[in-house]
Computed example of a mutant assay.
Amino acid sequence: MAAPSVLILPGWQGSGPLHWQMHWVRQHGYTVVEQDDWLRPRRGDWLARLDEVVIDTPGRLLLAAHSLGCIQVAAWASVSRHTARVSGALLVAPGDVEAGPVRELLPGWSPIVRQKLPFDCILVGSQNDPYCAAERAQGLARDWGARWVDLGAAGHINADSSLGDWPQGHALLQTLRKD
């Protein structure tokens, strides 16, 4: 059986060239789920785009989501008929779109879908993420049925966290493979 394809789901504003997601795209040939508007993300558009890419990508899939991409995965899984194609999801530093400032910046993304995801998942959070308190991230992990991994004081687990290609994260993603 072929290894699953990996779909990269960046968050709000996309992931720049120094972000671990883009390192993985360059190193491993993973596919970025491109959005029409990274600055003004519309929930319905983002969910529809993810569904299109899932439908168009053959075989089993793994999702590697960051920030708003995590919220996208939960919302998509609650409405898509194609979730059985997904073997697992690595959800990193979910953005708390229900919190004051973020809620105002990203209207239409709350409430966060809090039901158990229909595939294996790991949620990696940080003790000092400015966009989601560790307790909130742990609550999302519980609600989504995800294994919680605490990365310590790693900020928003993005390019500013100086993770480079983040081999530990890639190893976590590989534990979700079912081939």
Score class of each variant (00 low, 15 high):
33 V>Q: 02
31 T>C: 05
111 P>L: 09
108 G>I: 01
33 V>A: 04
38 W>C: 09
79 V>D: 06
59 G>S: 08
77 A>S: 14
69 G>Y: 03
66 H>I: 02
36 D>G: 15
31 T>G: 03
82 H>T: 10
74 A>E: 06
87 S>A: 12
44 G>C: 08
97 V>L: 00
42 R>N: 14
91 L>H: 07
60 R>N: 12
31 T>W: 04
50 L>S: 12
66 H>S: 05
81 R>Q: 15
33 V>D: 02
103 R>V: 06
62 L>S: 03
46 W>Q: 00
59 G>M: 06
111 P>E: 07
82 H>Q: 15
32 V>Q: 11
86 V>G: 04
102 V>C: 02
44 G>K: 14
87 S>K: 08
51 D>Y: 02
104 E>M: 10
115 Q>K: 15
33 V>G: 01
74 A>G: 09
95 G>M: 12
43 R>D: 06
72 Q>R: 10
30 Y>I: 02
58 P>I: 01
65 A>E: 05
34 E>H: 13
103 R>I: 05
106 L>K: 01
50 L>I: 10
108 G>L: 00
72 Q>G: 12
94 P>A: 11
116 K>E: 13
109 W>L: 04
107 P>I: 07
93 A>M: 05
55 I>P: 02
30 Y>D: 12
34 E>R: 15
51 D>C: 03
118 P>H: 12
103 R>T: 09
107 P>G: 09
44 G>L: 11
34 E>Q: 15
72 Q>E: 12
62 L>C: 07
91 L>A: 05
34 E>A: 14
44 G>D: 15
81 R>M: 08
118 P>V: 08
52 E>R: 15
59 G>K: 09
115 Q>Y: 04
89 A>I: 01
50 L>F: 10
87 S>W: 12
42 R>H: 14
63 L>F: 02
66 H>D: 05
107 P>V: 07
73 V>D: 00
103 R>Y: 09
58 P>R: 11
58 P>N: 07
47 L>R: 13
63 L>V: 04
99 A>W: 08
62 L>H: 02
30 Y>R: 13
53 V>R: 12
100 G>F: 08
104 E>T: 10
74 A>Q: 09
34 E>M: 09
37 D>E: 13
47 L>V: 14
92 V>L: 10
70 C>G: 10
103 R>C: 11
103 R>E: 13
55 I>D: 14
69 G>W: 01
86 V>I: 15
86 V>K: 06
106 L>F: 04
53 V>F: 07
92 V>F: 07
70 C>T: 11
